[in-house]
Write a protein that binds this DNA or RNA. Structure first.
Lengths: 347, 347
DNA sequence: CAAGTTTATGCAATCGTATTCAGTAAATTA
DNA sequence: TAATTTACTGAATACGATTGCATAAACTTG
């Protein structure tokens, strides 16, 4: 039937009104008479009409789309994507859909020049940043984004340069809960895997929470038990290896991510160290695998569904010209089987 | 500096050429002199110019975007997204990026009228369908998509109505391998969880492979050991419950998805049935949790990275006007700890 | 050297919607 | 009744790139 696709002119013709009225009616403009609007909508439905997003976007200069940028190493084919961010991605998509926004997903390297691409190309009205990793290069990008007037929100990071463009969980508190739990179980020589430097504020905050718990318990903080790592499973294995090699006695590990914890437990197992009997381990994130792991992982849960809603809301706030509002979610300690009390009389 | 954003006219002005030449140069058209092109590109870089995708899309009627449609139940807030599709989603995004396509993610219900939306609204040039679930309503949509001339590819399903628009793994072979493995271990009363009806071809094919293995081993197929389910963990628990209640003896379960298998093992455990000693269990998919689960899950692996590449390639083939090409990937049995030999003299 | 070809560029016409501005009929007010 | 407001509607235009067509210069070739 007919040639070419249906446009608002076709509908205007059938309805006996102008194209302008069609455009207004479909966007529920109060300028259009109710009956006219219904008539137009009915015809639109019958003709299977859908607004051309390119045309609408060109005219209005809005894409009604949010970009989710995931910073993971895209060089290697089989590099695993952090399951925590993956589930986040799903939840953000849902939250955005509920607000009538489309979602564009993209993997980037921090070094690339993604910072202006989405806004200037009119491809996304706002950006959500996940898992940016190394913070050093990040601050610079943030600065550029703000200067360019881009609407964006960051998961996890905090800092004055972000000017409240953050949704995260209270990392200090989460780490404090985790470490306190280990202390309560009688553990005293607790190792920490994560960030001790300022490179990644999330990891650093978890370190701060760890220190806080130890200090409050009157325990000295031992630099020999700390390992500066990223979030990866392999790093957990590496840190454990180093720890074992050092010969330093330890009875627990608080790992700043579940993947780190899993890597650690696997490595401990190959050396015959029993978890949780000899060494208790706590993770952070509560990825799906945490509850399936053997032993199931005690970890700090972040509510990704609520977080996703807040992320989406915050970007949309900015798109609508309002100021961003920082939000910290409460972490919850999920107690499972990877940590238990100290056996009596053991080193 | 200056007002408004940079357009191709600005670049044309600076370069002393027409806007048309700028457009051509940036798209590497052979119509433009090499030196002119380099000059234009240099200026574009200096001005931080990015092509307006809305304008380009409007004129060319191409969005250079692929839509990934995930069919999962979006009603409930905390409904878990199948991790298999989630990791697929990540891999597809990467594969698309390598081909210079953007990726739009969307969760849909089969019943909604998504089938024309993306094409007619000029939002995506092609569609990749994942996890459509119930096949009955699906065939109808496929028909409409084809009639509308939409470029799309489906993961998993096969069937004449799809006309080769499929990338999947050889489900029959995968199920055959899994069941044969159980038989080799001495198991004889093997239950099947999955689809025995035509509702979902993937599940049905896995059933066929199961039957084939039993038949070749000269074992009667017992309908009392079969349970018609979807992919969910809860369904695995349900089927196990029913199986236990029936009182029928069984020494193994082949579940058509890992989530089903996990649900089954958890349920068995609460009844004191030991896995793999009393009952061996094999799953399908090899989701990340499979290797972390206790006991780690023997399962059939599908190479999602390769699959994702093929999915993307196939959609792009169609966008470029070529015919789709069906591709079946080889499944690989991953032997882990959820199945073992039968203990001597046990029922 | 004339005629034909190639190469590189510009002009101008789209693509389909949102929106400004102006206009008209009806309703309200003075 | 005239004046003013209200409630809609339409004509015209702008958004910024892509692309068919025309053309001028440079280059071949017999």
């Amino acid at each position: 039937m007919g040639s070419g696709k249906t446009t608002s002119f076709d509908i205007a013709h059938r309805a006996g009104v102008s194209q302008a009225t069609v455009s207004r009616a479909l966007r529920d403009s109060p300028l259009v008479n109710t009956q006219t609007r219904e008539k137009i909508k009915k015809i639109a439905r019958e003709l299977n009409y859908h607004v051309d997003r390119a045309a609408a976007g060109l005219r209005s200069q809005h894409s009604h789309t949010l970009a989710i940028l995931l910073f993971e190493d895209p060089t290697s084919d089989d590099s695993q994507i952090n399951p925590f961010f993956l589930s986040m991605l799903g939840n953000i998509t849902r939250a955005a859909a509920r607000r009538n926004y489309d979602v564009l997903v993209s993997f980037q390297q921090l070094s690339d020049d993604w910072h202006l691409k989405y806004q200037l190309s009119n491809r996304a009205d706002g950006i959500i940043l996940l898992g940016y990793g190394d913070y050093s290069g990040f601050a610079d990008k943030v600065d550029k984004l703000i200067k360019a007037g881009t609407c964006f929100t960051v998961w996890g990071a905090t800092g004055p340069e972000l000017e409240d463009r953050t949704i995260g969980c209270d990392n200090v508190d989460g780490a404090f809960q985790a470490t306190s739990h280990l202390l309560r179980l009688g553990r005293r020589k607790i190792a920490f895997f994560g960030g001790t430097s300022d490179n990644c504020p999330e990891l650093k905050q978890r370190y701060d929470g760890y220190c806080k718990a130890l200090t409050e318990a009157g325990i000295n903080i031992d630099p020999g038990l700390q390992f500066d790592t990223d979030f990866q499973e392999t790093s957990g294995a590496w840190a454990t290896e180093e720890l074992l090699k050092s010969g330093k006695p330890f009875d627990a590990i608080f790992a700043a991510s579940d993947l780190l914890a899993i890597g650690a437990i696997k490595r401990l197992r190959t050396s015959g160290v029993r978890v949780p009997i000899d060494v208790s381990v706590v993770g952070f994130d509560d990825i799906p695998a945490a509850s399936y792991f053997n032993p199931s992982l005690t970890t700090v849960q972040q509510n990704t569904i609520t977080a996703s809603k807040h992320l989406v809301n915050q970007v949309i706030r900015q798109i609508k010209g309002k100021k961003p509002k920082l939000k910290l979610l409460e972490p919850i300690l999920m107690v499972r089987h990877s940590c238990g009390g100290k056996p009596r009389g053991n080193s």
